[in-house]
Amino acid sequence: MKKGFIYRLIYGKGKEKDFTLQNLPATRTKQFFFVFKNYFGKIFRVNLLAGLFVIPYLVWDFILTGYVARFMRGLPAEEQFSHLLRLSLLQYGTEIPMIMLAFLGLAGGFYIIRRLFWGAPVMILKDFGKGIRQSWKQYLALGFITGLFNFGASYFINFNLLTVSKEVEFIHVLAIFGIVLLTLICFVALVFALAQSSLYGMTFFGLVKNSFILTFKRLFRGLGIFLLSVLPVLAFRFMPWAFMQIIGGCLTLIIGIGFALCVQTAFCLKVFDEFINAKSYPKFVNLGLNSGVSFFEALNEEPAEEQDDEN
């Protein structure tokens, strides 16, 4: 019986041949598209869940950015400079706990997205909670460091912008460029740290060290992937109009976080397969791809509820 359009949209056209491991994508890049297409509903739900943790930061940042902008409007540079530290503390200092909270949401998100890439069974709410329970300490610590860095970098940039003079303009520009570059590198390292913390059990010092090692092994590619994952949404974020920022915030909550997690997970898994799994966890190399084994075979046993299946 010929099936209608809606039926085929929902249930597919009906395959003649069995689906096997050979039908899985061959590379992590192709796997990103495969996962994003097939599990869009799950990614959307993960996005919403993680978004709950990000909302306080987005709202507070939106409010304070507007407040600081209104406060500083019309003031001369010297007067703005006199308020800089106080306002920086007010804005970026108070954001630190909210950034830490947002990172908890990322803990759950990374855990689920990684399982989707591995072809593991996923129960959204349960696995989200498991992801948080598993890595909350390290994620909170990373969130704290990120918040501090955010405060420091923003203060440094604003300091340079407010104290720039024609004689040493080049130095100020170089300083700003340097801090931006450092920020990007640290964000790439941060992504590696978040992904590793979700996957491997290691000390915090080991986590940070490994992250920077991996960052410099794959620096340019890492930078590109990071920008690719956050730019579509951040583009709205940095537009001067409040309306655009609201749209950017909404996009973040709808799919931005999930998209970023998928891009970063695909990249991180590729790097981990190359530098870590190949030596220490061979069964997890290319897990989820057509050249790997199935998830059940990789685990080699029935997973119990509380078992840590990453190690």
């Binding site: 003649e16 989707l116 199935s294 059940f296 997973p303």
Partner: peptide
């Protein structure tokens, strides 16, 4: 669930959506 999937040879497709499978 894992036992049922093993008994019916479905472990390789456990994470797939029905639309990707044959009849």
């Amino acid at each position: 669930v894992n036992k049922a999937l093993r008994d019916f040879g479905l472990t390789d497709v456990a994470s797939q959506l029905p639309r990707n499978l044959s009849g």
